[in-house]
Design a protein around this nucleic acid. Structure first.
Ligand SMILES: [Zn+2]
Ligand SMILES: [Zn+2]
Ligand SMILES: [Zn+2]
Ligand SMILES: [Zn+2]
Lengths: 159, 159
DNA sequence: AGGGGTATTGATACAGTATAACAGTTATAT
DNA sequence: ATATAACTGTTATACTGTATCAATACCCCT
């Protein structure tokens, strides 16, 4: 795993880098990054936090890009399917992938106090969960790994 | 981890054993296993599968134990809080714990075809996720680990 | 360029999941 | 007995997600 990001960073280049990586991926694979899909991704990259589908829909509506739930959900379905965006099951929310294009099994650290979410980058060799699944004859296709707790900043404030 | 349970088992003793364990836990800790809470647990133990809150509510309603959502959700909140029941975030559903009283970090194997769920019993030493959280200064309080795929039975049927 | 199949969007309606708020009741502790 | 806290009952509402069908845009082939 690489270290996740609760720390500050150069957000402008973070956004443009991710967006370029996604555009390249789409071109290579013949995927259509339509205006709504691209805008949803941009919103998530810009906010850099987990957002509910209806939060995103509010932004789309304000921009005249569609005002009904299916618009947002369909764009999100596309982005999640191709791993450009991850769904945080614990929050029923979505967050832009921090490593678009790279094969990875995402894991998330979710702060219960400030709702910040950091994506940890895991490699493909599953640990014990893979072992136990193999023993049980279960074939894993997708995993949800989310840890809830307190981020460094909120620990300080609590102390 | 111990092996999970897609295989058959002695369900009657499985139920009574879990229920006794929970009753003992409640007595030891001064928790109130009220009729509604106990009945919700019994329903989940009896069904031995992940059930939605409204499925459970239907059963309660049929038995005259309450007919409105908060009744079910409050009982589930209690049971989840004390680890007698786990929530499967991926399914928005609940399942009775297979090891009530034992300290453990649950992980689940969810079949996307038949919706069966097996609970894997992990020990407390978190693997890589614990390492990366420590590096980031994040304090984990709770984890959600859910693997989605195909159970042995559904693999056979698909072949 | 024209036609036909496919993917995407637009729009309405609805289904499923969860909580807020407040009143009434039961259990627990002095 | 009384005060306190915990639990239940009830109403209403908020939040999350999908089914369906019509209209439009894209792609590939002739
Ligand atoms: Zn990612
Ligand atoms: Zn925080
Ligand atoms: Zn358990
Ligand atoms: Zn199955």
């Amino acid at each position: 795993m690489t270290t996740p990001g609760f720390e500050h960073h150069d957000h402008a280049s973070c956004i443009s880098g991710s967006l370029e990586a996604v555009e390249k991926q789409c071109k290579d694979k013949g995927l259509r990054l339509t205006p709504v899909r691209k805008r949803v991704l941009e919103i998530l990259l810009d906010e850099h936090r987990a957002m509910g589908a209806y939060d995103i829909l509010d932004r789309l509506r304000a921009e005249g890009l569609g005002s009904q739930p299916p618009i947002a959900y369909r764009a999100l379905d596309f982005l999640v399917k191709h791993r450009f965006v991850h769904k945080i099951e614990r929050l029923n929310a979505f967050i832009a992938c921090g490593h678009p294009g790279e094969r990875h099994v995402p894991a998330f650290l979710i702060c219960r106090s400030c709702d910040s979410v950091a994506e940890a980058h895991t490699d493909l060799t599953q640990g014990r969960l893979g072992d136990v699944a193999r023993d049980a004859g279960f074939v894993i296709e997708r995993t949800v790994v989310e840890a809830e707790g307190l981020c460094p900043k909120c620990q300080e404030e609590a102390a």
